[in-house]
Design a protein around this nucleic acid. Structure first.
Length: 268
DNA sequence: GCGAAATGGGAAA
DNA sequence: TTCCCCTTTCGCC
């Protein structure tokens, strides 16, 4: 779930469901009880996504106005209409408004921050392709100055924010760039296309709530809902034939994450 | 029932 | 680089 598109989607949902409302906040699991009690009874003023991070700004409470959430690999939100269900499993934090409830499980980060602390996190992040006015230049500079693998650089949140393992694999495939190519071998044109395509795919992800990167002509069924197995070109398709050239898709480990690519469509 | 894997990242070495 | 954390789900006994 949680690459940047999910985060932006959650932000939109949570804003429309809870912003402007006074919330009851608690931590059924207990691991965030202290923080929850500091937010309880305050008004949620705004929800702000950036890359894979979310901030919930609360009224009053002095300095500590933000709830910072990072879902990590497992984090998940669920929401619904009141009455809220009896909490099952490890619910780190729960919001309850007059009409709705929200549960958060398994996040890497769920903590209260001051504005300065939030700014310090933002300062460490590269541009987010999902921010409408986002300027990709700083990312381009970092990549084209680096000898490390492009596949590694795209996953580095201080280079670009919000790209995860699926988008990394898929945008490189669509651009015909091997993940192993050093960043400094990318041409201007290759970067431009990569950035533009990333924005296109991630925006579609926000809209639909899922990642689909295959073009209709490259799928067995050209219309209708895209089955999970047809949604990607290379992600988790190692050993299977490339959708375009039939060469076997490869997998390797790169910085402790699996990376997938077609050696023919994405030459070194 | 048990182990492994998963769209992530920070700290330690 | 390696280890460690978060939680659920799925495949395999």
């Amino acid at each position: 779930m949680p690459e940047g598109h999910s985060i932006h989607r959650y932000a939109g949902q949570h804003r429309s469901l809870f912003a402007g409302q006074r919330l009851r906040v608690d931590s059924p699991q207990g691991r965030f009880s202290e923080g929850a009690s500091r937010l309880d009874g305050r008004v949620l003023e705004e929800v702000h996504p950036f890359g894979k991070h979310l901030w919930y700004r609360f009224s009053g409470g002095g300095e500590a106005g933000f709830l910072h959430v990072h879902l990590g690999l497992y984090g998940k939100f669920t929401t619904g209409e009141n009455p809220p269900p009896e909490p099952k499993g490890a619910v780190r934090v729960r919001f309850v408004s007059e009409g709705r409830w929200l549960e958060l499980r398994g996040p890497t980060a769920c903590e209260i921050q001051t504005e300065n602390e939030r700014d310090a996190v933002l300062a460490r992040l590269g541009p987010d392709p999902l921010v409408p006015a986002s300027d990709g230049e700083p990312a381009k500079e970092r990549i084209r100055r680096s000898r490390s693998a492009t596949g590694k650089l795209l996953m580095d949140q201080s280079v670009v924010s919000g790209i995860g393992n699926i988008y990394r694999a898929e945008i490189l495939f669509r651009a015909g760039i091997s993940p192993n190519r050093p960043g400094n071998t990318l041409s201007d044109g290759e970067w431009r296309e990569l950035w533009a395509d990333t924005r296109t795919l991630m925006r579609a992800g926000v809209k639909t709530g899922r990642i689909v990167t295959t073009r209709p002509g490259h799928r067995p069924k050209k219309s209708g809902r895209v089955p999970r197995t047809d949604a990607f070109y290379v992600y988790k398709r190692d050993g299977q034939p490339c959708r375009i050239c039939k060469t076997g898709v490869l997998r390797a480990e790169m910085a402790a994450r699996n990376v997938f690519w077609c050696p023919k469509c994405q030459p070194e």
